[in-house]
Design a protein around this nucleic acid. Structure first.
Length: 103
DNA sequence: CTCGTGACGGTAT
DNA sequence: TATACCGCCACGA
C-alpha cells in the first residue's frame, strides 16, 4: 500500500476527538479509500507499540473491539475507551450514544 | 504470477 | 439474529 494512504489513514485517526470513536469504514472513506476498510485495520496492526496514534478509538461497524485474539490489547483498548467516558453494554458493544463522529 | 489471508463492511437470504 | 457471499487490496509464501 502506498505510504500516501498510510499517512492519510493515520492523519484521519489523529483527528478523532477524545471521548469519541470512528469505525474502520469511516476512517477509510475520509482517508479517500472508500470500501477498503481492510487497509485501515492492516495499518493499525503494523503500528509500533509505543505509537501516539489513538488507534483504540477505532472500532468496527457493529461498535465492537475488533481484536478477536490478543486479550491483552483487547482489554487495553476497552479500558482506554472507558477512561474517556465511553461505555460498553453487556455484549461488549458500545452504546450508540458514544458515536458522534461523522455518522 | 497465483493464492490465501485478514484489527472490514454491505447486501442478500 | 445468524450465515453466506462478495468487494477490496496490501502482503507474504
Amino acid at each position: 500500500m502506498s505510504s500516501e494512504n498510510v499517512d492519510r489513514i493515520l492523519t484521519v485517526i489523529q483527528q478523532i476527538p477524545r471521548g469519541k470513536v470512528a469505525t474502520y469504514g469511516q476512517v477509510a472513506r475520509i482517508a479517500g479509500i472508500p470500501r477498503n476498510s481492510r487497509q485501515v485495520g492492516s495499518v493499525l496492526k503494523n503500528l509500533p507499540p509505543r505509537s501516539d496514534i489513538p488507534w483504540y478509538r477505532v472500532v468496527n461497524s457493529r461498535g465492537e473491539i475488533s481484536l478477536r485474539d490478543n486479550l491483552q490489547s483487547q482489554s487495553y483498548q476497552r479500558t482506554a475507551l472507558e477512561n474517556e467516558g465511553i461505555q460498553f453494554n453487556g455484549q461488549g458493544r458500545l452504546s450508540l450514544t458514544t458515536y458522534g463522529w461523522e455518522m
